[in-house]
Design a protein around this nucleic acid. Structure first.
Lengths: 143, 143
DNA sequence: ACGCTATAGTTGATTACGCAACCAATGGTA
DNA sequence: TACCATTGGTTGCGTAATCAACTATAGCGT
């Protein structure tokens, strides 16, 4: 675990910039990002939770905030009435575009200050094997 | 940041075992560990905070719990009356010994399942450059 | 057609932590 | 020596996340 200790300070530093500049936490940001990359800008809440490594309730509350800010909306699924989609709004998409510029720059700077691109590649390979880095295709509600 | 996402699940998994088997969170455990490695089993709270990557207040509360469990005590410093030491008690030392066995095994298992020893070394080198991994010698109250 | 189990999501209580404000000592420096 | 910036520590408050309990569907197997 010692190994992973550094995570806290890194995340905090980067997250703080994001909050200060755009009013988004890292999870807010990454939720928007996942939605943006998903088909139709929508995901089932449960799939989003898995991607963000949050519990279902964590996602409920995260999305509460984003909905309140008008960045996402809910939509229901015709074929399964249990599911609620989180859908990126146009506002949300814009917000993401705006914030990604500086955020990506911040992250890049942070890592490039300490690692060469080879090392970065290595790091990505190694850390990519941890759970939660998977990239399986999620189920769609198109039945 | 994507890179560091895996951290959450790993920490949770390992921490859960520790809590279930010994009633200690990872921070509890590592606090005891740092104290055990320190001279006389004691550290200034502020130094402990730095090691654990917690704020001063975080450490205050962490130690509250450990004190309540009789695992650490407070001691004051003769030469600087601002400082309070956290001191490992005999009970605490025993607790640490007990829990370290299974915890170390758990961690080892977790990492050895996914990485070769070379890779582990690489990972340690790379992650060791993140802030909070430093190993500077801390000030002692022996003036 | 009926019940049983699994899945999606929400809510209440609790926890862990950070930040800001604060107090008390320290240790220059004017 | 009187002041003031710095350091160690605690406390109040807010936030993000967990877990457990719950509701509502879904989709079996008999």
């Amino acid at each position: 675990m010692r190994l992973l200790r550094g995570h806290a300070s890194v995340t905090r530093a980067i997250s703080a910039q994001l909050v200060a500049e755009h009013g988004l936490t890292i999870n807010d940001y990454e939720a928007l990002l996942h939605l943006a990359k998903a088909e139709d800008g929508r995901m089932r809440r449960v799939d989003l939770a898995e991607r963000l490594i949050l519990t279902a309730s964590g996602v409920t509350r995260l999305l509460d905030g984003l909905e309140a800010g008008g960045l996402v909306e809910r939509a229901s699924c015709a074929s399964d009435r249990r599911v609620t989609y989180a859908v990126l709004t146009e506002t949300g998409r814009t917000k993401l575009r705006e914030s990604s510029k500086s955020h990506i720059a911040d992250v890049r700077t942070f890592f490039e200050e300490r690692y060469s691109s080879d090392e970065l590649q290595q790091l990505a390979d190694l850390l990519g094997r941890l759970p939660g880095a998977g990239s399986a295709v999620e189920g769609d509600c198109s039945a």
